[in-house]
Every structure is written in structure tokens, then in C-alpha cells.
Amino acid sequence: MTVRRITLLGATGSIGRSTLDLVERNPEAFEIEALTANRSVTVLAEQARRFGARLAVVADPDCYSDLKEALQGSGIEAAAGADAVAEAARRPSDLVVAAIVGSAGLPPTLAAVERGAAVVLANKEALVCAGPLMVAAVARHGATLLPADSEHNAIFQVFEQEERAAIERIILTASGGPFRTFSREAMADVTPAQAVAHPNWDMGAKISVDSATMMNKGLELIEAHYLFALPEQQIEILVHPQSVIHSLVGYADGSVLAQLGVPDMRTPLAYCLSWPRRMSAPVDRLDLAGLGQLTFESPDEERFPPLRLAREALRTGGAAPAVLNAANEMAVAAFLEGRLGFLDIAAVAESVLAQQVPRAPASVAEVLEVDAQARVAAAETIRQRASA
């Protein structure tokens, strides 16, 4: 495999760290063009020095002087601000790993797409909030989307493009999160510490809470719709607590193809970084005999209403998915700060989704405007529920 230059958007998060672990283990295969972070200056500067990045960017302009000082004498260029993050995505590189959490990742991800890059997509909000815009831009600019989420990556590996007409369904698996067996009454009292303790995956706080509410799976359903151009009715969700089968594709002849592996994000990331080939990854090998059994359950939309909300948003179309995402981000933040109960997360999202029904955004600016409006509505809804 020839040397590939990588721009990593969101270098200090869990996806960023896993990506850099693979890069470090394969120095003959990869080089780093640019690294970005939100505010984690110390970690970003250490990463930039360690991997010989040409550019390091911090999204928060207030952190620029600290970053510049931390990189002094290294020869590494420093920059700050949202525009600088997007400019990093435009720099020449073979791969752009889009791992910025939330709607903030949309502009730089689209910037990478618009230069026709191969984008390792770990930011599901880019497709959730702006699916039609992203899909159109990919086609217009000849970009390649390589899904890094374990579920979408699994589908990508067994999705036979030349047999699209024979594909009947795709099945996204879900661990069920830490509260899979809890009643709604029990979930009413769970704490942020409990919610971020995922039974299988080591993830950031926000995505861990999304897994606990199963909003993560709802957003993945929306993402899968745009990634694989399948209608909502052909996308199923199956609870699989062991997180070994990462997703499946069902075909017209009755065959169901699945991708299996231990729950380690370095497996799908390695597939993306080396695509269309494969590379070695330092993950535990799957021992099915040791596991003994794999179990499956139907999802419960009564206990986990975000699954229903995501389907409703996708059917509504337009800006509804962006509204759902923004309201959820606000509600999760309030929950993590202790201002909102766990069950209130979905309630806030549902309330805002009912209030906000703007037309489909025609540009990134309109997507961000919808996002901002939904956040205002969510903040007010959170305030009302917190004071009730």
C-alpha cells in the first residue's frame, strides 16, 4: 500500500485517538497532514509533534495563543476558528477522517467532500442534518464516503453494489446500552455516570448517552438511509447485546450476510484507512466458541422512544432530522450537567420536533440556521421542564 496522507478532524476524541493508534503502528503506510480539535490544546499539540503534522487547528479562537505557544519551535503551522477547521479539510490529503462530534462537523466534512476527497465518515450528524446536500455533493464532486461507524462499516463490507436490486433489507444491530433491561420507571432515576458506562464500547460521554437512550441507533437509521439509498421501510434495527455481529444485509434469495468482530473501533477504521485493501489491526480476534452464544431481541420503542422519533423524522423529511439532532444534543448536554432527567431527553426531542417543521435546507447556512433555531426551542423546553 502506498503512503497515504491523512487529515484528521477531531483528533483528540475517541475516534481520533484510535485512528492515530493505527497510524502509529503503520508508519510506513500513513503520514499526517493536519489535525484539529475543539479546545484540547495540550493533547493536540502533543499529537501534532508526535506524528509530524504540517498543521494543527483548534476550533476555539480563544485557544489560538496557547496552541501557537505549545507548537513553538516545531515548524508546525497553527490556526484557530471554524473557518480554519474547514480549511484544514480542504488541504491536499488522501483521506479526511471526519470525527468531529455534532453539527459542528458538518461544514468541514462538506468542505472535504467538495474537493472530491475520500472521507472516512465518523460524524453521523453530517448525513443526519444535511443528508440530501451531502449526497448531492458527493455525486457532484466525485467524493467517496467510507463509513466508520461499526454498523455502517459492517453493511458497507457486505453490501453488494452490483446486486442492489436483490437487496431486500439492511439490519442495524444495537447493543441496547446499559439500560436494555430497565423498566421506564427504573430509567427515570439513572444518573449520568450510569449512562456513560457502556457495557461493550469505550466511547465519549455524548455518544454513550445516545446509546443508552438508543437515539444513537435512531440517528444511525437516518444515516443508513442516505448512505445506502434505501427507504426507511427496508432498514431494520435488531438488539444484539454482545455487539459481535455489527450489522447485516438481507438478499432476495434468502441469504443474510453479516460482518462480525470484537467491539473495537480500530477494526472499521482500519478497513476505511486501507480501503479497498485490508490492513492488520491490533484487536482481539473473535472467539465464537469462547462466547458460547449470541442473542437477539426486537427493540422496544415504548421504553426507547428515540427509535420511533427517528423514523418519524425521516418520514417527515425536510429539516426534521436536523431538528431532532439539535434538540437531542441540547437535551443530552443538560442531562450530563444534571439539569434534566434521563427520560426527559427523548421528551425534549419529541416536543421540539413537534414545534419545528421548517422546509428542507438548501445550503449549509440554512442547515445551521435550522440547527440554531431548534437549539433555542430546546433550551426553552429544557428550562420549562427543569422548573416544573
Rank of each mutant, 00 (worst) to 15 (best):
L288Q: 08
E380C: 02
I100F: 05
A346F: 03
E350H: 03
Y251F: 13
T181K: 13
E366G: 07
S150H: 07
R303W: 04
A270Q: 07
T109A: 14
A165H: 11
R4W: 10
V58L: 06
T213H: 05
V138S: 06
R164M: 02
L291S: 03
L340S: 09
A224D: 06
S183H: 02
L9F: 10
V138W: 01
Q157S: 15
R375D: 13
V262H: 04
L307G: 12
A224I: 06
A154H: 06
A154G: 08
L340F: 05
P132V: 12
A354P: 00
R303A: 15
Q234N: 14
P282Q: 11
A360N: 00
M187I: 06
A174G: 13
L314N: 07
H198S: 11
A122I: 10
S243I: 09
A197N: 09
A195V: 00
L340R: 03
E366A: 15
V96N: 03
H141S: 04
P192E: 01
R4L: 14
P147K: 06
I32T: 01
I382Y: 01
W275R: 12
D264G: 09
E301T: 15
A354F: 01
K68F: 02
I100A: 05
P263V: 05
L260F: 05
L35A: 06
L9T: 09
R169T: 08
Q233V: 14
M187A: 14
M265C: 11
P178L: 05
S14A: 15
R25L: 15
R308D: 12
A126I: 03
P305F: 05
Y64H: 15
A82N: 12
P27G: 00
G81P: 07
T42F: 01
Q72K: 15
A349N: 02
P61Y: 11
P92G: 07
L343Q: 08
D287L: 06
R54Y: 03
N216H: 09
A126D: 00
V119N: 11
Q233M: 01
H141I: 02
T2D: 14
H141A: 07
A53T: 08
A174H: 09
L106F: 12
P107D: 10
A360T: 05
P231N: 12
Q47E: 07
E329I: 11
V357C: 09
V244K: 02
A165W: 03
G116Y: 02
T109M: 11
A104C: 05
L309A: 08
G254H: 06
E151Y: 03
E337T: 00
N123V: 13
E46A: 15
D284G: 15
P132Y: 08
L340V: 08
A117R: 09
F179H: 06
T295M: 01
P199I: 05
T7I: 08
P61S: 12
G341F: 02
H152A: 07
L324D: 04
L340A: 07
A88V: 04
A360S: 14
L71R: 08
L121F: 08
A377W: 01
A378I: 04
Y251T: 05
A205S: 14
R180Q: 11
A289N: 04
